[in-house]
Amino acid sequence: MGLLTYSANRTRIKICGLRTPADIDSAVAAGVDAVGFVFYPPSPRAVTPNIAASLISRLPAGVDAVGLVVNASDAQFEAIRAVAPITLWQFHGDEPPAVCQRLAQGQPWIKAARVGGQFAYDDFSIQYSQANAFLLDALVEGYGGGGVPFDWQGIPQEWISANAPRVVLSGGLNAHNVGEAITRLHPCAVDVSSGVEISKGIKDPVLMKQFIEAVRIADATPSP
């Protein structure tokens, strides 16, 4: 298991921004492959390293604990690492490749891309070639997609075919559109946050279950 274990017929699933034991238990029961912890204080989904450590203790083996950071200082990063057993890092700010590589200290890491109309996919994947995965999110003001989808049809087919084992698709996904996204792009994984919330930062166990069920239905549906 784990978020970045690529399989052509099983899309991996990450639910991000979990903050309570009930969130964790519902996500695990629904069959999630990874949960994301936001270490970015301006976010309504932010948690402290100690809270994250407590929540991670509820995860079964094989479910990744993803630490999301945004332009974190060395001191902030080490404060997280000291108490929270993160298994996969997600760099969601403007971190250069060398900084990501240095902070990860040999652990796997994801680089988030803020995809706008003129996004240069080839340049991005070459620049961050050492990343274990590329997370495609919408370009909005600030950091994070804000639940906003981007134009999936704008992704070059050659690029997605070459990089599918490393692509994590995010940005405005929910139970109603994730199936189409999987059918079109066949990413390694999908990432959802606001699409399974009843209000900002408040996860809904029913929506989490529906999202994961929609992914599994898409996986079982032959491509046209």
Rank of each mutant, 00 (worst) to 15 (best):
L88H: 13
L88E: 07
H92L: 04
E95R: 12
P96G: 02
P97E: 07
V99H: 13
C100V: 08
R102A: 12
L103E: 04
Q105S: 12
Q105P: 01
G106D: 12
Q107K: 15
P108Y: 13
W109P: 05
W109G: 08
I110W: 11
I110V: 04
K111H: 11
A113F: 14
G116Y: 14
A120N: 15
D122P: 12
D122H: 12
F124R: 15
A131F: 06
F134M: 08
F134H: 14
L135M: 09
L136T: 01
D137N: 05
L139N: 11
Y143H: 14
G144S: 09
G145W: 00
G147S: 10
G147A: 11
V148C: 11
P149Y: 05
W152Y: 13
Q153I: 00
Q157I: 11
E158V: 06
A162G: 10
A164S: 14
P165A: 05
V167D: 01
V167M: 07
V168T: 00
V168E: 07
G172E: 05
L173M: 09
A175C: 02
H176E: 15
N177S: 13
N177F: 05
V178F: 12
G179H: 09
A181M: 05
L185K: 03
H186Y: 02
V192H: 09
G195V: 02
G195I: 03
E197R: 05
E197V: 01
G201T: 00
P205C: 13
P205V: 11
V206W: 05
Q210K: 14
Q210I: 10
